[in-house]
Write a protein that binds this DNA or RNA. Structure first.
Length: 129
DNA sequence: CAAATGACGGGGT
DNA sequence: AACCCCGCCATTT
């Protein structure tokens, strides 16, 4: 194969791992950059997640809007088009944003893994869903 | 090659 | 809660 320059290669392993995780986030649920990185096997690489998502072409089909910053904060500065777009897309699938924030306790994506339980401290009062 | 730059996170004030 | 600062890391200047 003709060797391609690394700077041109669109998808390395880390990118694929990250996108795979983001694609797993169910409709109506959100996750955070840090958690996505963790689940992608890239602990402490939250920034990398943001960078990967920022390069997504429009209509990529990847649910990037389900990824928010720590504490449920929408990463885009309030008032920017991107910020509104994300809030709108979240609202359309039943995830309300209040002052650029989503309630992770209510809409945070938690699989049935151990790490998730620790992070969100789910007790036995987990009724709905 | 050094410095700046981010769709980040966490801790301290 | 708002801010600032620093650690982190791939890219860009």
């Amino acid at each position: 194969m003709t060797p391609r320059s690394a700077s041109q290669r669109p998808a390395d392993e880390a990118t694929e791992a990250i996108l795979a995780v983001v694609r797993q986030i169910p409709r109506g649920r959100v996750s955070t950059y840090g958690i996505v990185a963790e689940r992608a096997g890239l602990p402490r690489r939250a920034r990398l997640v943001g960078r990967v998502l920022s390069k997504l072409p429009p209509r990529s089909g990847v649910p990037w809007h389900r990824v928010v910053a720590a504490g449920g904060r929408v990463a885009f500065p309030p008032g920017t088009p991107a910020h509104r777009t994300q809030c709108l897309r979240l609202a359309r699938e039943g995830v309300p944003t209040l002052r650029g924030r989503v309630e992770l306790g209510r809409h945070g994506w938690r699989s049935h893994g151990d790490l998730d339980r620790l992070l969100w401290r789910i007790g036995d009062q987990d009724t709905a869903d």
